[in-house]
Simulated assay, not measured.
Amino acid sequence: MPVPIIIPVLAALLGGATVGALSRQPEINSLQAQVRKLQSEVERLQNVIRMQDRQIKQLLVQYKGLKAYQFNARNKARNYTRGALIFQYAYKEYLELLMHSVDTGMVKLSQEETIFFNIFDKVIEGQNVSDSEKEAIKEYILYRYKTQIDNLQECDCNSMVERLRDYRD
């Protein structure tokens, strides 16, 4: 007799499992739809990440380009400022040599001072100055005021201008 009881019990169990599985089918379908939606969302987010990566790379290229441009512009500005400072210090040196000569009544200058003075006198007079003469001025001034010029320290010519005014009066 045990066999006839097993069949109905198995049938009841299989029927219960089938009914249970069928009753849960809408939930399973809903979860599968959510999985598909999440998979498509993952793809969409991966595309967004790829696009952002591309944009970041482009921005980095632009940033580096601007940085290079800024470096170039900064160097140009520094060189322009340096040139202006060389001229200011040359003007100061010229006035100091001129006033020293007038104050002492002596025109005795060193060879370097004489070369500088004569060339810068041409600059003051508005005469043409060759590139080698400009280079001689630059070398002389850098020899005398290299630290101040390298530090972009402005030349204080106010005392010289005041002394010039005294000569005028």
Rank of each mutant, 00 (worst) to 15 (best):
L38M: 15
L142Y: 03
L45N: 05
I56F: 03
D156E: 11
I115G: 10
N158G: 12
Y80C: 02
E162K: 08
S30I: 06
F87G: 10
C155T: 03
N151E: 09
N75C: 04
M106N: 15
C155H: 07
K122V: 03
R168L: 13
R44S: 15
K67R: 10
V102D: 12
S23I: 11
F87Q: 13
A77P: 05
Q70L: 00
Q58R: 05
V61Y: 08
A33C: 04
T114S: 15
K108P: 00
E113G: 09
A11W: 05
R36T: 13
R44K: 13
D131G: 12
R165L: 13
R165G: 15
R24I: 07
E43H: 08
N118M: 06
E93H: 07
T147I: 06
D53W: 04
Q62M: 03
A21M: 08
R165C: 10
G83L: 03
E139C: 05
K138L: 11
Q88T: 06
Q127E: 08
D169P: 08
A136K: 01
V35E: 10
Y63Q: 06
Q58V: 01
N128W: 05
V129L: 01
F117G: 04
I137E: 01
I124L: 03
E135K: 14
D131F: 08
L22G: 03
T147P: 07
N128F: 06
S159C: 05
I124T: 00
E135D: 15
V35H: 03
E125D: 11
F116A: 01
L152H: 03
V123C: 13
K138I: 05
Y63V: 01
N79C: 02
M99I: 04
R168A: 12
Q25P: 11
E27T: 06
L10M: 09
Y91E: 14
K108L: 06
T18C: 00
R44A: 14
E162R: 08
A90Q: 05
K37V: 12
F117C: 02
K37I: 14
L14Q: 00
P4E: 15
L14D: 00
